[in-house]
């Protein structure tokens, strides 16, 4: 007899679990809250929206003076609205994909559907990083293109400084600030979504291997 056949016999004669759940307990379990991966991805997305909204509200009005000085107020407001609109669309897709997930599908289909959520998350990350990069790039370009404005914004007390030196300092400090911010953001995404999607990625790789047989 094959080694596994012997184990299979043992498997078949194993006892039922000592902790059987009664109908009442099953009822309670069925109505408890799910904590599936998909749900967590959705919750994290919601928390992110809340996070960015809070940051936005906490920024003092004086911070926006720089945009006023640069006559960029309208553009900034327009992009803010667009930004939150885009985030809402992303969240809507999160929700849609979350709703579409059904444990009744076969495993391959299910993983593909969850992977679609993963892609939404990925595009969301790319979008956020692009926005950070683009907005600082635009702000800098406007600043640099007009040395009078730059002087006014960076040197409000009218101290005597060399304009070239000021430009260099501004560029370097901006680059450093943007880099630090992007690294922090990237780390945050890597940690949160990496943690959430680790198991899914592993199982998806296995299934891909199955297809390639």
């Amino acid at each position: 007899m094959d080694l596994l056949d012997k184990y299979k016999k043992t498997w078949e004669s194993q006892p039922e679990d000592s902790k059987r759940f009664s109908k009442v307990e099953i009822y309670k379990l069925a109505h408890s809250k799910s904590s599936s991966i998909v749900k967590w991805i959705f919750i994290v997305g919601l928390l992110e929206l809340a996070f960015w909204l809070t940051i936005n509200m906490l920024i003092p009005d004086s911070f926006y003076k720089i945009y006023e000085d640069l006559n960029l107020e309208n553009q900034v407001n327009f992009f803010m609205v667009l930004h939150y609109l885009v985030i809402s669309v992303f969240l809507y897709f999160f929700y849609l994909n979350y709703k579409k997930i059904s444990a009744v599908d076969n495993t391959k289909k299910l993983i593909h559907k969850i992977l679609k959520i993963r892609n939404t998350v990925k595009y969301y990350v790319y979008y956020n990083l692009t926005i950070v990069f683009l907005s600082s790039f635009i702000l800098n370009s406007v600043l640099m293109s007009d040395s009078d404005k730059l002087m006014k914004v960076m040197n409000p007390d009218n101290l005597s400084v060399d304009i070239n030196q000021l430009i260099t300092v501004t560029i370097i400090s901006q680059i450093i600030a943007v880099l630090i911010f992007m690294v922090l953001l990237w780390l945050f995404y890597k940690l949160i979504y990496g943690y959430l999607l680790k198991k899914l990625n592993r199982n998806h790789k296995e299934l891909i291997k199955l297809e390639e047989l």
Binding site: V38, V104, D105, K199
Partner: peptide, 19 residues
């Protein structure tokens, strides 16, 4: 039969904790 599928899928794809 239906239950095997749903339960296995939950364990493989939906259950949050790493195994």
């Amino acid at each position: 039969t239906w239950m095997y599928r749903v339960a296995l899928n939950t364990a493989i794809s939906l259950y949050r904790k790493s195994t």
